[in-house]
Nucleic acid binder design. Sequence first.
DNA 1: TCGCTAATGTACGAACTAGTACGTTAGCTA
DNA 2: TAGCTAACGTACTAGTTCGTACATTAGCGA
Lengths: 221, 221
Amino acid sequence: MTSVEEPARPNGRIRDAARTRAEILDVATHEFARAGYDGARVDEIAASTRTTKRMIYYYFGGKEQLFTAVLERAYGVIREAEQSLDVEHLDPVAAIRRLAELTFDHHEQHPDFIRLVSIENIHGAEHIAASEKLGKIGSPALDVIRRILESGQKSGLFTADVDAVDLHAMISSYCFFRVANRHTFGALFGRDLVAPARREHYRTMLGDMVIAYLTAERATD
Amino acid sequence: MTSVEEPARPNGRIRDAARTRAEILDVATHEFARAGYDGARVDEIAASTRTTKRMIYYYFGGKEQLFTAVLERAYGVIREAEQSLDVEHLDPVAAIRRLAELTFDHHEQHPDFIRLVSIENIHGAEHIAASEKLGKIGSPALDVIRRILESGQKSGLFTADVDAVDLHAMISSYCFFRVANRHTFGALFGRDLVAPARREHYRTMLGDMVIAYLTAERATD
DNA sequence: TCGCTAATGTACGAACTAGTACGTTAGCTA
DNA sequence: TAGCTAACGTACTAGTTCGTACATTAGCGA
């Protein structure tokens, strides 16, 4: 019990603005994702921190701005992941499948992010609207899709008449639903959509679906 | 302003248990869907009602049970809609497309329901678990899908190796995402997924996607 | 090393919020 | 028509929750 790990601090007080800010963000992310915006308690967030509630208001201004900051960081993470996307060397079919699988993986690995997005939608995306960063964050994935799609459509491989945004929506919806709605779906239909044993099955299914859609022979009426 | 519509009531007090209960449920549905479980205020719900807060506790017992009752009724509505599903006379391809379109329409027409499901997922589907009704509500849609799928697979028309639950998840995810995530998606990508002008486009896209997936030629490796 | 300020802690309050104690009455039934 | 009870209303409370006023200090720069 008596500390050994602790660095020699005169009073237990350490000053590290960046660390304190980051720690608040970490804890707040979990708490907001766990309980929703209104369900989250700033006292609770503060208590799970090395510091006090005062610091939340000092660094972020209030609960609302804290949530916005949480969102900004969470979106920043996917943006980074998307930027490391490297599929342009593949043929269009393989590239799209790979992109879909990366989206699938990212959703699965970041359930907190999915919950935050659900929560933000309940609140009409008002925090995104209020954020300067999030408005112009863009989407590297969208650019990648655009290029793959163009290449595939030009070569005649892709017959579907979709643009990048709609295809992105299609892929996202599948990945998002699986994580976001796993509780109600599981409770109602008795199937765990995120069971590890079914993971590969659903990952393949997504790729099959998207490729089938893009390459299907269409009636020329 | 001075009432003319009002029926002659001695004191403004009318007794109608069923009506009062139903009105509370209506208002609560809106309020919960609007603000989330924790964001909703039972005082607010009561105020939007002809009656008082006391009645909410009289009829439902508490906020938690009220939310459960709201969910039960909302799920009851889709269940009814699904029961009127009549596609068995169509060939498998047309039947699946019709089913997908009905799902699409239902999601679009009941945004409050979609929000309630999102909210319930944030809370780990604990209210569904606590409800006796919801556990065994079943899904007529699932039975329909099962039959269509069997028929299509037997005839060799459908090549995909899916079961009804997974196909239902696929269709639902598309329909759900479009409505549930329209705010963040719109804010981030500048595209309104529920714009009336794009409605037909997305409806067709869903059918194309599902049919393409089910009927695609698959590598036999 | 001295002082200044960014960073931190404590204690508190005003407003809100779920829930309840208690009282009232409409309208059915015997 | 008398009385009983389901249905309803009022007023209140205990506990919570966001936010802040005020006090303190670590540690950097002059």
